[in-house]
Simulated assay, not measured.
Amino acid sequence: MPGFAKKKKHSVMIVEDHSIVRMGLCMLISQLDDMSICQEVDSGDKALEYLKNNKADVIIVDISLNDMNGIDLIKYIRRTDQKVPILVLSVFDETFYADRSFAAGATGYIMKQEASDVIVKAIRTVIAGEIYASEKIRNQLLKKVIGKNDEAGETRISTLTDRELQVFELIGSGHETKQIASILRLSIKTVDTYREHIKEKLNLKNATELIQHASQWELTRRK
């Protein structure tokens, strides 16, 4: 009607390397009257390049990108923008990765398998300045706060730093040291140091045990 100002839509940026998932999110958001896509990219580097000169009201980040770990991307974004809501979209075990995502600066964590209306609710929640997490995640984080984290436990893998975990996951995916160094933009010597730290923390005797353990972990976390 004449005289009525058009309602401003919240701008959404999607960082997702799987084209089908990215297209699905774009279609979902394009149907909403309170959101619009300002940018969609398939890598962390492209996301950071866009954010140098542009802003978004909310950023949806896949936790596993081809060129960098989603947790690393969140940390990079937080160096220059402490306020933008960041919603992590993941297929991986929320009881393990949600904690690390929130520690890096995410404001929400949701599994890709969730229904469309739940994903929309999560986006709107973080845009409103609130934290979004499933009941399972909230209970887990609360147990940590009160010192009763019996369910998650302090497994050996949970003692790995974010970078050590990334190296461990890449080993499990079949990458060799030189490839890992290239992907993470580290020296081969640094990757070797991380490998030694991982073996020590996980009580593994040699490289063979490390590869076997990492491969098993990679299979388990993708179930």
Rank of each mutant, 00 (worst) to 15 (best):
G105P: 04
T80D: 15
V91N: 08
F96G: 12
S90A: 03
R79L: 14
V88A: 00
F92I: 15
F96K: 10
K83G: 05
S101W: 12
V88M: 05
V88W: 02
D99V: 11
E94F: 13
S90K: 02
T80N: 15
R79H: 15
T95I: 13
I86S: 01
R79W: 12
F102M: 03
F92D: 04
K83A: 09
L89R: 04
P85M: 15
A106L: 00
A106H: 00
T95N: 13
L87K: 06
V84S: 08
A106F: 00
R79V: 15
M111Y: 02
T80I: 14
L89G: 05
F96V: 15
L87T: 02
G108T: 09
I110M: 07
G105Q: 05
Y109L: 04
R100F: 00
G108M: 11
G105I: 04
M111E: 11
V84H: 01
S90I: 10
A106P: 03
S90Y: 00
D81Y: 01
V91A: 08
R79F: 08
T107Y: 02
D99P: 05
Y97W: 12
L89V: 04
Y97T: 01
F92L: 14
M111F: 10
E94C: 13
E94K: 02
G108D: 13
Y97I: 08
Y109H: 07
Q82D: 15
A104I: 04
G105N: 06
D99R: 07
P85T: 14
L87V: 01
Y109I: 09
Y97P: 10
I86C: 01
F102T: 09
V84W: 02
S90N: 01
F102K: 10
D93I: 12
Y109G: 00
A98K: 07
A103R: 11
E94R: 07
E94G: 03
F92V: 10
L87G: 06
A106I: 00
T95W: 13
T107D: 04
T107K: 11
S101A: 12
L89C: 11
V84Q: 12
A104E: 06
A104C: 06
D93V: 11
M111D: 05
G105W: 02
I86N: 00
T95H: 14
Q82R: 09
L87D: 07
Y109P: 08
V91Y: 01
I86G: 01
A104H: 03
Q82L: 10
F102H: 04
D81R: 03
T80W: 08
Y97Q: 02
A103P: 13
D99G: 03
D99C: 03
F96C: 14
K83N: 06
E94A: 04
R79Q: 11
S101D: 15
A103V: 11
L89N: 07
F102Y: 07
Y109M: 10
V84C: 08
M111I: 05
A98C: 09
